[in-house]
Computed example of a mutant assay.
Amino acid sequence: MITIGGYLDCYAAGELKEALPAGIEGGTGDVVISLQGVDFLDETCLGVLAGVHKQLRDGPTTRSLRLVPDTAGHLTRLLQLMGLTAAFDLYSNLDEALTASCPGVPVGGMGKETSGSAQQSRGDDR
């Protein structure tokens, strides 16, 4: 599981682009990214998430990107306005995303946390 938080604008996109692939490399299962702590997400960082989604989908084994938007619904609304709700697997809460069933497929990319300006902070294994 990867947790992202803070203000994610074009200035944070480069760090996010480096941090996310590092958090999913070597995994074999689906990847859950919690955006519950995100205060702002611009189109540049949304593009980074789309790139990760494509990387997982087109990799040697098909993996899924499970997103948990903010609880207030602002990010979900942004994805709706941009027509991207069908492009991502969206979940209303973290437990739902972590337990979503894909028979025999574990959740990968565990133990990474990204916050603020897309810098890795501490890792929490789940």
Rank of each mutant, 00 (worst) to 15 (best):
D9W: 02
T28D: 08
G111Q: 04
A100M: 07
C45W: 05
Y7N: 11
R63I: 03
G59Y: 02
S101P: 01
T99Q: 14
G23S: 13
L67K: 02
G5I: 03
T99P: 01
G37C: 07
A87Y: 14
G83A: 07
M110R: 14
D58T: 12
R126E: 13
C102G: 12
Q36Y: 02
L98C: 13
G51H: 03
C102I: 07
V31C: 02
M1P: 11
C102L: 11
D30P: 01
E43K: 06
D42C: 10
L94E: 15
T28Y: 10
L79F: 15
Q55Y: 02
L75T: 06
T76A: 13
D58C: 09
L67F: 05
M1T: 13
G108H: 02
G83N: 11
Y11T: 12
G83R: 01
A87H: 09
L49H: 03
L20Y: 06
G59C: 06
I2T: 10
A12I: 08
P106K: 03
G116T: 07
G73N: 07
S101F: 09
M82W: 00
L41M: 15
R126L: 14
D42M: 07
L79R: 04
D124C: 11
G104V: 08
Y91T: 09
S64N: 07
R63W: 00
L67S: 00
Q55A: 15
D30F: 03
D9S: 11
E15W: 06
E25W: 04
T28V: 13
I24L: 09
C102K: 09
L65T: 05
I33F: 00
G108K: 02
S64A: 09
L49E: 10
T114C: 15
D58G: 05
D125E: 13
T99K: 11
V105C: 08
L46M: 15
L16A: 04
G37L: 08
D124E: 12
L20Q: 04
Q36I: 07
S121M: 14
A86E: 15
D89C: 10
D30A: 11
L75C: 01
S117Q: 12
K112M: 14
A13C: 05
D95M: 01
G23K: 03
A22G: 08
I4S: 04
A22I: 08
V38A: 01
A100Q: 10
E15K: 03
V32L: 11
V105P: 04
N93L: 02
Y11N: 14
V31Q: 01
D39C: 07
M82T: 15
G27D: 07
A118M: 07
D70T: 13
D124W: 11
D9T: 12
G104N: 11
K112R: 10
V32M: 03
T62L: 05
S117H: 12
A50T: 11
Q120N: 05
D125Y: 14
T44F: 10
